[in-house]
């Protein structure tokens, strides 16, 4: 009996959450090109979470989606703001990644969408695309997994095009405007900014789920996760001016909302040209 008691005790120690070993929680924002801006935009929400949890929360910026997944799995990240595709990838590898809420879009949009754009003095239809196509990042929601099905509709195989990953949605828009690419794919929200300058929308994706806030079940207690979720959903948009992340508020979300992403991913054989 004594030996059994010792083993249970050791297991309890080994299985105890990483966050319990730390005196703070770790929040990783959505990686974007301007790290400082990302960190700055995350400050208000993190402060809000600290208040909700009564525990310090630190921001850890991780630029690469894949690295985010690895750190999350390793228990180094407690809370993360992820793109839908990244969430799906994470969930696939790590079942203890728990959806808490998703950030609303501009003007309270409850979905995310990708557009394929071209300059107004360029091609007018998707099928006219011959060669050069601009993309953001391989694991971006508006990346190959979203673009390929749309191109497929125009009988165009992404794999046959000369693609380039330009990093950011803005770069995609501007490169297209400068006619460096015949067309490009980017988030609808960004694309809308450049439409007045001279972007034409050639195609729109289906409505996609929003960017979720994901909790690490292995490092956070049930109570902590509930507190965070409740806190996020309680945010009222009127009170979040200049917040950056979370400014539009959050909405409930479920894992099955991301099945569409899973389907897109399953249907698409991604080939990218760096």
């Amino acid at each position: 009996m004594r030996q059994l008691g010792f083993i249970v005790f050791m297991l309890m120690i080994l299985s105890s959450s990483h966050s319990m070993a730390r005196d703070h929680l770790v929040f990783t924002p959505l990686p974007m090109q301007d790290a400082h801006l990302v960190v700055e935009n995350s400050q208000r929400l993190v402060a809000y979470l600290e208040a909700v949890l009564s525990k310090p929360v630190r921001i850890r910026y991780v630029a690469d989606y894949e690295q985010v997944v690895q750190l999350f799995k390793a228990g180094e990240i407690d809370i993360a703001h992820l793109g839908p595709l990244t969430y799906v990838a994470l969930k696939q590898q790590f079942a203890d990644a728990q959806l808490l809420a998703a950030e609303r879009g501009v003007d309270g949009l409850d979905f995310y969408q990708c557009w394929i754009v071209a300059p107004i003095d360029g091609i007018t239809e998707l099928k006219h695309i011959k060669q050069r196509f601009a993309l953001t990042q391989p694991l971006s929601t508006c990346g190959p997994y979203s673009v390929a099905p749309l191109l497929d509709q125009a009988k165009i195989k992404l794999i046959n095009l000369t693609t380039a990953y330009l990093g950011t949605h803005d770069n995609v828009a501007l490169s297209v405007l400068r006619q460096e690419f015949e067309a490009g794919a980017l988030s609808a929200t960004i694309a809308e900014k450049y439409v007045p300058l001279g972007l034409r929308v050639l195609a729109k994706s289906d409505k996609l789920p929003l960017f979720p806030i994901v909790a690490n079940r292995q490092t956070l207690s049930d109570e902590q996760r509930l507190l965070i979720q409740h806190g996020l959903l309680s945010i009222v948009a009127d009170t979040t001016a200049n917040w950056g992340l979370g400014q539009q508020g959050f909405m409930p979300v479920e894992d099955q909302d991301y099945d569409i992403i899973r389907q897109l991913k399953a249907a698409t054989h991604v080939h990218t040209t760096p």
Binding site: P119, I120, P196, L197
Partner: peptide, 13 residues
């Protein structure tokens, strides 16, 4: 103007 702006951008970028 829109096209001129776009052209100007492309020329001066």
């Amino acid at each position: 103007r829109q096209l001129a702006r776009l052209e100007l951008y492309r020329k001066l970028y």
